[in-house]
Design a protein around this nucleic acid. Sequence first.
DNA 1: TTACTATATTTATATATTACGATATTCAGA
DNA 2: TCTGAATATCGTAATATATAAATATAGTAA
Lengths: 94, 94
Amino acid sequence: MENITKEMEILEAKAKVLKALSHPIRLCIVRGLMEEEGCNVSKMQSCLEIPQSTLSQHLAKLRNLGILEGERNGVEINYYVIDEDAKKIVKTLF
Amino acid sequence: MENITKEMEILEAKAKVLKALSHPIRLCIVRGLMEEEGCNVSKMQSCLEIPQSTLSQHLAKLRNLGILEGERNGVEINYYVIDEDAKKIVKTLF
DNA sequence: TTACTATATTTATATATTACGATATTCAGA
DNA sequence: TCTGAATATCGTAATATATAAATATAGTAA
């Protein structure tokens, strides 16, 4: 039964997106990026009031899971939400 | 600014629901319960092929987080999805 | 009662996540 | 090339999560 394996893969993929969003800070980041496309890290930091390394690690996780993509602009990096499921979830919740 | 605190509380509450759903087995349980209202545990178990205690613990987590509610029917317990955000998320994803 | 079935809880262990200071990297401008 | 700003990565301690065997509980029926 290949179907069962495939079903499991789908569930795992969806669960991965949910996990990526399942932390208040990351949820806040993604929601923020949907409101203000291409926000940079410093701007996020001033909103979130957490240490820079903590924020950067959350961004790294979102990047590695394919939720966000960063675009360098000089010394700054602008982030965008690229995962469609993540966008849908956030739109649904807020 | 009370609003910032309140915003954080909302983010935490939403993140909690996402976390509840962010495991493939739990996502499968909740999706299954939305298709077949009030499924009982044995039925779920035959689908999921995991040990009984593992399944029961996932159910406990979903119950404790207010995602599900169980209703005893004799020796069986039927589960229902009661959290609206969880329902919306699953509908959105599948 | 006793025995059986369905489900929950406990316990132990392995694994993953989170947080954050310290340090490194990357780029722009002097 | 040196400096400073923006961002990433490393090291590590604290905490949380996942798994499953063993045990407990609740209900039904003989």
